[in-house]
């Protein structure tokens, strides 16, 4: 069989696994969110459905499926239906370029863990997709024909424009150090020094900026102004019900997972093992090594997810002017300075 068919089969299998994996991660996020928020408030949280309430998110989604789907009379029906689809599909599309482990050698084929292996514009693709994600929310706000939804949607786009800049600039530091836009190269670059040349040590300022902007990009925690339930009823999803709301919900948690994964890939060493692979006796390209890499990666992602949720239940929402001040007057100058210093460092030290 020609090579192209094998490639298509491989990519399809990986795509199916990744899409399924994202849904499961979203379910896991819902569960973690409910449990951690409960614990932070001295409650127990879901404990009725399944052992320790682990099946609660599935019950929630099942309930959403059975709910009535209401479209407001004066809403733009087509765009009202398109918005959640756009939101969710873009949240999933980002995963086309995200690797989540190293590679496995089967026969003479080298299989990378990721749908599009080692693509050389990975970082650009991610930046593009995370910005397009805001279209879903803005469209939802506009098509609902509701002032609260509209305000939520507008806030979302304003927030995205303000924070996208700092996010991109903080990533330029990494691109300068690595010299590549490929995510695999970025991770492999961090594998030096026995797997401890993490970008967080080389780019601490960039890490903090990326972390803050990641919160803003996912519309979470201190930056959840687009939904801001006390002031905007429900923000952009005020007029959504049933599974359309469920899709926004799913997209939010998928975005949260994506952000955690990106932080791990860019700054926290990706799948770098804490000790060299040789000391563990794992062969390069073996399934065991890939599994170990995935495990390390997954644990890091879980810890970041915990952090995301922890922050949400600790810190109050920013006021709108504070949000803009932080984005334009503080984060942007610092990230510009960071790029300058990194460029000088790369120029004279390398």
């Amino acid at each position: 069989m020609p090579e192209i068919i094998w490639t298509i089969i491989e990519a399809s299998i990986k795509a199916l696994a990744v899409v399924g994996g994202i849904q499961l991660m979203a379910a896991l996020n819902v569960y973690l969110e409910r449990k951690i928020s409960a614990f932070a408030q001295n409650r127990i949280g879901p404990n009725r459905v399944g052992p320790f309430g682990t099946l609660q998110p599935f019950a929630d989604v099942f309930k959403l499926f059975l709910k009535e789907d209401i479209v407001p009379k004066n809403a733009d029906k087509f765009f009202h239906s398109l918005a959640p689809v756009l939101s969710l599909s873009i949240a999933i599309a980002v995963w086309a370029v995200i690797p989540f482990s190293s590679y496995v050698d089967i026969g003479d084929r080298r299989i990378y863990m990721g749908i599009a292996p080692d693509i050389n514009v990975g970082l650009l693709f991610i930046l593009a997709m995370t910005s397009v994600g805001v279209y879903g929310i803005t469209l939802a706000g506009w098509s609902s024909n509701n002032k609260y939804s509209l305000l939520g949607g507008l806030r979302s786009s304003a927030q995205m424009i303000s924070y996208e800049l700092s996010m991109g600039l903080s990533l330029i530091g990494i691109v300068l150090i690595t010299g590549s836009l490929s995510l695999n190269d970025i991770v492999n670059h961090q594998l030096a020094w026995d797997g401890w040349r993490w970008n967080i040590f080389l780019q601490p300022v960039g890490f903090v900026i990326f972390l803050i902007t990641a919160f803003a990009e996912t519309n979470r925690a201190p930056f959840d102004l687009p939904e801001a339930e006390p002031e905007l009823v429900g923000g952009f999803n005020t007029e959504y019900s049933g599974m359309k709301f469920g899709m926004f919900f799913l997209a939010e948690y998928a975005n949260m997972t994506t952000s955690s994964v990106l932080i791990v890939l860019f700054y926290l060493g990706g799948w770098a093992l804490p000790v060299p692979a040789e000391t563990l006796g794992l062969k390069d390209g073996s399934i065991a090594l890939a599994a170990a890499h995935f495990l390390v990666f997954f644990i890091k992602v879980l810890m970041l997810l915990f952090f995301f949720i922890w922050v949400r239940w600790s810190i109050p929402r920013f006021r709108y002017d504070q949000l803009m001040n932080l984005g334009w007057k503080i984060l942007l100058p610092i990230s510009l300075l960071n790029v300058l210093l990194t460029a000088l460092g790369v120029l004279y030290l390398k």
Binding site: F39, A40, N42
Partner: peptide, 8 residues
């Protein structure tokens, strides 16, 4: 963050 962690 420390406060909420303590409460957990």
């Amino acid at each position: 963050l420390g406060l909420t962690l303590k409460e957990m």
